Simulated assay, not measured.
Amino acid sequence: MHHFVSGAPKLSFDRIGDGPPLIFLHGIGGNRFQWRDQLVAFADRFTAIAWDARGYGRSDDYAGDLAFGDFSDDLLRLLDDLQVEKAHLVGLSMGARILLDFAPDRLDRIATLTLCDFFYGFDESLTEEKREEFIALRQKPLLEGKTLSDLAPDLVASLLSPSASDAVRQRLVDSIEALHVGSYLKTLAATLRYNRGANLAALKVPVQMIYGEDDRLTPPGIGEGALAHLPDGRLNVIPKAGHLSNIETPDAFNTILGRFLSIYRDTACWKEV
């Protein structure tokens, strides 16, 4: 099930099942294991794939600063390596923002998009100055010697709903502790300096949005605002779920995603070789 895309940096991904390609992109504090409940659930209908983004999991770290567009280039590398003509693409939080960056210039490679618990632009309340302050505050503890284990409790509390189980909380702690500190610091800076919210109008493919009702980081109202800009969008909100709706409430998440994908299943395809 585990594979690599060669090149610089080398990319790691899991693959299971047989059928049209369905690819999952994790958030800033995650890795490919964030999607294990989805890989198992969809392997009977799709070839389900979850990557480690560059600098995450078993993917290589990289020299120099990160440009957020590097993730899109890596996704294209993955599609080409797998000989994917068109894929169903699913991204959560940072993974969704990677798809917002990737999609407008590569609509021919996309069957559908599912965007989960994400934001798509900065308003007056988050000025450039405030974004730089946020970056500095998030980086400072690690730069001053604190460990990811030190930071995990507060991060977990901010991301999960009050009803999250102990097993889900431990799963998120494990994910945070597995981060590559250097790459995580670079990703924090790159993602807060990236803004392509205007891309929503260019997403001329079917788009499913999924939010957790108790998501304090990216509340469902963001998805409601996005609906006005999407040519073909729909929104579902999952009760008693926080920012990681796919992990906290996998059954509800999989039901929404499965219903959406069933309409368009065969629009994803492999290249003829």
Rank of each mutant, 00 (worst) to 15 (best):
R54W: 02
R54C: 05
G55H: 00
Y56I: 06
G57C: 02
R58C: 05
R58N: 11
S59A: 08
S59E: 01
S59N: 02
D61S: 13
D61H: 05
Y62G: 09
G64A: 04
D65S: 14
D65E: 13
F68T: 06
G69R: 03
G69S: 14
D70H: 12
D74I: 10
L76P: 09
L76F: 13
R77H: 07
R77I: 09
L78Q: 07
D80M: 05
D80E: 14
L82S: 04
V84L: 09
K86I: 03
K86L: 05
H88M: 10
H88N: 04
H88C: 07
L89P: 01
L89E: 07
V90L: 11
V90E: 02
G91Q: 06
G91D: 06
G91C: 10
S93V: 08
S93N: 07
R97P: 08
R97A: 10
R97L: 13
R97C: 11
I98Y: 01
I98E: 04
I98Q: 08
L99D: 09
L100R: 02
F102L: 14
F102W: 04
F102S: 12
A103Q: 05
P104C: 14
D105I: 01
R106V: 11
R106D: 15
R106H: 15
L107T: 05
R109K: 12
I110S: 08
T112G: 03
T112L: 11
T112Y: 06
T112C: 07
L113K: 02
L113R: 02
L113F: 01
L115K: 00
L115R: 00
L115I: 10
D117E: 12
D117S: 11
F118W: 10
F119S: 09
Y120H: 11
D123R: 05
E124H: 08
E124D: 15
L126I: 12
L126G: 02
T127F: 11
E129G: 08
E129L: 10
K130V: 10
K130G: 11
K130P: 10
R131M: 06
E132P: 14
E132C: 12
F134G: 15
F134C: 15
I135C: 10
A136Y: 05
L137S: 15
L137E: 15
L137R: 15
R138T: 02
R138P: 01
R138Q: 11
R138S: 05
Q139P: 00
K140E: 15
L143S: 07
E144L: 14
G145W: 06
K146E: 14
T147V: 06
T147P: 01
T147W: 08
D150G: 03
L151E: 00
L151I: 00
L151K: 01
L151H: 04
A152V: 00
P153G: 05
P153H: 12
P153S: 12
D154C: 00
D154Y: 00
D154F: 01
L155Y: 04
L155H: 00
